[in-house]
């Protein structure tokens, strides 16, 4: 069960690297939220109502519904639709595959006996995918999506190494991330309205 969910999660990352419509980015991030919910539930050893509630809030509601809704709202308001036409899908796919191979190699050398190798490798791949999205794409919306992919990767990573923080700390972390995303979405809209750009290349007015 867990393995199939992990494979599906990996496929979403590969698809994300070649997706050229921002609506698809938002949809994939929603799917990742649901997959993370499935993975977290499948890994629960005992039934804890509080822990279960938190998982539902963090994965299903927060990652699966709220964040994709914010992204869709930004897409609708800014009318941004696709990644930059000059971006190469082939190049992005190649980079993504290289990241996958690199993740497997690093996992092989780094993971110890307390670490779940598959989780570790996929979460590392998620982190690299997020970074690739930020570095290779020119539109800042793609950067926001890359940041969210990294956040999902971090969530998976915490499961890989079996670290469980106290509930209050988890809630504080979740609220922090939610507010950051809300503010990023707000400023993305403002940039579109005020300086009529959604391209990272245009953000060069501050320099020495």
């Amino acid at each position: 069960m867990i393995l199939s969910l992990i494979i599906l999660y990996t496929l979403t990352l590969i698809y994300l690297s070649i997706a050229d419509r921002f609506r698809n980015h938002a949809t994939i991030l929603a799917i990742q939220g649901f997959l993370l919910f499935g993975i977290a539930i499948a890994r629960m050893h005992e039934f804890h109502p509080v822990e279960l509630s938190f998982i539902i809030v963090e994965t299903l509601i927060f990652k699966g519904v709220v964040i994709p809704a914010i992204l869709m709202h930004v897409i609708n308001k800014t009318k941004i639709n696709r990644i930059h036409s000059a971006s190469s899908q082939f190049g992005a796919l190649t980079m993504s595959i290289i990241a996958l191979v690199a993740s497997c190699t690093i996992t092989y050398y780094m993971a110890d006996d307390r670490t779940d190798m598959i989780f570790f490798g996929v979460s590392l791949y998620a982190l690299l995918s997020g970074l690739i999205l930020i570095v290779m794409r020119k539109r800042i919306f793609a950067h926001l999506a890359g940041f969210l992919v990294i956040e999902n990767g971090v969530f998976l990573f915490s499961m890989a190494i079996g670290v469980e923080f106290p509930l209050l700390i988890n809630i504080a972390i979740m609220i922090d991330i939610l507010i950051s995303i809300l503010i990023l979405g707000m400023f993305l809209r403002r940039m579109n309205d005020d300086i009529h750009t959604d391209e990272a290349d245009a953000l060069t007015s501050i320099k020495d």
Binding site: I140, H143, L144, F147, S180, I183, L184, F187, L188, R190, M191, D194, I195, L203, S205, I206
Partner: peptide
């Protein structure tokens, strides 16, 4: 304009 750019970069 520059403060908007700086803010975006800072948060991101």
């Amino acid at each position: 304009k520059q403060s908007l750019e700086a803010t975006w970069k800072y948060i991101f």
